[in-house]
């Protein structure tokens, strides 16, 4: 299973990005082997439909859980339908803090 954390930058000390569709980066953590990659969000500046596009991307990547600050109604609906778990976090944190929390759980 893979978990995605929306990130403002491409490293662990980057701030957690509370936007989902328009997040700058995606931190992708693979629980099976501990692999960690940062993927740039090509839809961050899209005219519209970023939430939908990014939701589809999550499904394509085989993501089971997404940690972000806010999911729009379309993204929510899609992720629900594809059985991707949504986690809404409102605190200001670094990507590393959140990653450690899921690793420990």
């Amino acid at each position: 299973m893979k978990t995605v954390i929306t990130a403002a930058g491409n490293n662990l000390s980057a701030a957690f990005d509370k936007r989902f569709g328009r997040a700058a980066w995606f931190c992708v953590y693979d629980h099976a082997n501990g692999a960690l990659v940062f993927e740039k969000n090509d839809f961050a500046d899209a005219q519209g439909g970023a939430g939908t596009k990014v939701s589809e991307l999550m499904v394509e990547w085989g993501v089971g859980k997404v940690i972000s600050g806010d999911f729009g109604p379309k993204a929510k609906d899609l992720l629900d339908r594809f059985k991707v778990q949504m986690v809404v976090v409102e605190e200001d944190a670094t990507v590393e803090t959140l990653l450690e929390r899921i690793k420990k759980s």
Partner: peptide
Amino acid sequence: YSVPEGVDGSRCALC
């Protein structure tokens, strides 16, 4: 957090 089918909701999805 949401709880998709097949996921245990009784424990926090983050911590």
